[in-house]
Design a protein around this nucleic acid. Sequence first.
DNA 1: ATTGAGCTTCTAGTAACTGGAAGCTTTATC
DNA 2: GATAAAGCTTCCAGTTACTAGAAGCTCAAT
Lengths: 128, 128
Amino acid sequence: MNVRDAGKRSGLPSKTIRYYDEIGLVVPDRRENGYRDYDNQAVQKLAFLKRARQLGFSIEDCRQLLSLYEDKERASADVKMLAEKHLTEIDKRLEELQQLRSTLKHLVHACHGDERPDCPILADLSGQ
Amino acid sequence: MNVRDAGKRSGLPSKTIRYYDEIGLVVPDRRENGYRDYDNQAVQKLAFLKRARQLGFSIEDCRQLLSLYEDKERASADVKMLAEKHLTEIDKRLEELQQLRSTLKHLVHACHGDERPDCPILADLSGQ
DNA sequence: ATTGAGCTTCTAGTAACTGGAAGCTTTATC
DNA sequence: GATAAAGCTTCCAGTTACTAGAAGCTCAAT
């Protein structure tokens, strides 16, 4: 099927699918006229990628997940390791964001937000 | 002072300071030999930027914050509005990340992680 | 035959830097 | 004074994962 239909079935934009072809993630057959031709297996891979990306896996992680997905001899331990590594990164980002949010919240709270120029937010940014 | 010393005093890498010059954030004087020349006020702005970037403000937000910082007639309400908008975005990102983390955590927990190919993580990614 | 939709490739832009190369200037050493 | 090292300059490319748009070919419908 054409790229547009593959997009409808997988939930990905055509542009993204062409990009995944370009970087060798999901490489479709080609018809005689040069059009990409996606079969059901390829569409499945695309849907897999959509979900993995939604879960925040990087493209390179997705590449590995995809090859594990296709390897029927895989060890689930390998998949779990990837997911755990990703989870650790997410936890790290969460902590950073929470710290940041807390600081910002205090500053916003401290600022009276009126017509006067006096502002604790700017004071903080300028190192008091 | 030269870019390297400005970097030491502000805590920013020289490359970043040159970049801030290039995009018009902090534009220093130039000596006759073409070298950038940073005065104390410029260094203060750089330190201000460092802190604002640490708090996750975008460069364009920083540009506005900097002009408010320099405007002694500013209304603190304008600063507060910027900070609140940023806080809202952070809250949104936090919620997304937390949702994502929760899903991923369940999946990781469900995967036994041994030598067998059977894997709930891949099952989820492939749409069960 | 012609129009419109859909396909192709290619280039450039996004955010905010970072690394590296080629070349000029200054400083330090001999 | 010669030379070498360090530091400055600009410019180009790379990073992540697409996305927009242009020029041009192909296909389906009228």
